[in-house]
Design a protein around this nucleic acid. Structure first.
Lengths: 194, 194
DNA sequence: CACATATTTCATAAAATTCTGAAATTTCAG
DNA sequence: CTGAAATTTCAGAATTTTATGAAATATGTG
């Protein structure tokens, strides 16, 4: 491995981290390298710096492209493929979340919907279905929220995240300002209520 | 494998899904089985239903315990260990996020902080450090938000998620109501501004 | 304390994955 | 078209992960 020490530390860490996700060490390292690199790199650059085989790099890049995590570019008068990551880190986050949703949540939702259609054949199956319903509803809530904030531009998203639960305060304020008498929603919770 | 068809479908799916996360098939299956089960199960129950070896189940349960994803219980007059998942699915989500943060984000943050302390020895390293700084700041923002909403009780959390980006509307409303003249924060963005 | 039961550990077998080098294929300049 | 450069594919080697059965250890009851 032929890298500045500071870069190497990060690349190695990402390689290890990769295995805790579903990606292999080389893919993690390639990604980390591209993320840190100012200039786009071609496959041979990556081979030299990481000290892995050319074919391994080829496969790794293919996987990263499947994840939409790297961008393919060309330099004028150079037929080699150059790769880079988006400069905007928020774009990276959006892609990552989108792809993970596509791979992990969506197939599970499909399966849950299918299974929830079936008629339970025993009390055991009935209970199992209830649990699956809970998971289904949870995922629906989370993906709904995600679809919603996904649409925000970055500035607003950051604003929202910075607020964190302080949003809660504002919600309470809103509640107080716009109480509709008799509305269930507007009724204040009181522990003494039973 | 000795399970009602409906349960089996889900258990198999979770087993496959496991490998896309960092956990192995058996661990995924054990978890799915416990999640769907009304009653806590002991190791032998799991062996029978999943058709895997006793030792495999022992290891799998150990891993799930390390993740805080299963609860160990006892039945009166029975020395065997019984396992279950929390009934409250939100509790499960909280644990999962917490543990993943602990395993994936925290070590990365530690490394980023260390590397950001060092003096870059070249322009290349300087640029790499800037990228790491971006990642560091991003993680800080996200974990800050997480720490914040983590503290909300479930009802309020659901309320927040249900709102999604509609929160934005409320924020704008708040801005309009409480403009502090001359304050940077309260100044309305205008595309015509330069 | 003894002994039957339950659980864990661990060496190694089995399976899955990752990586490589060689060959095949693609691409494009001349 | 041709041929050199670039990339991809792929069979098998290397490595890593996962699963098993046997042995060791722990636990609790009588």
């Amino acid at each position: 491995m032929n890298l500045p020490p500071l870069v190497q530390t990060f690349v190695l860490h990402f390689g290890e981290m990769g295995s805790r996700w579903g990606i292999n060490r080389t893919v993690g390292q390639i990604y980390a390298l591209l993320y840190l690199s100012k200039e786009p790199l071609n496959a041979e650059d990556i081979v030299e710096r990481l000290g892995v085989s050319r074919s391994n790099v080829s496969m790794g890049l293919k996987e990263l492209q499947a994840w939409n995590l790297v961008r393919l570019q060309h330099k004028p008068g150079d037929r080699r493929d150059y790769f880079s990551t988006p400069d905007d880190i928020w774009q990276i986050v959006r892609t990552l979340v989108e792809e993970r949703k596509k791979r992990e949540i969506d197939p599970t939702m499909t399966l849950l919907r299918e299974v929830l259609m079936q008629e339970p054949a025993s009390v055991e199956e009935r209970h199992a279905q209830e649990r699956m319903r809970e998971m289904h509803d949870l995922f629906e809530l989370l993906t709904g929220w995600y679809a919603d904030v996904q649409r925000l531009d970055t500035e607003r998203l950051v604003q929202l995240l910075t607020l964190g639960s302080k949003v809660q305060k504002i919600l309470e304020m809103k509640d107080r300002l716009f109480v509709v008498p008799g509305s269930k929603k507007s009724r204040r919770e009181d522990p003494k209520d039973k």
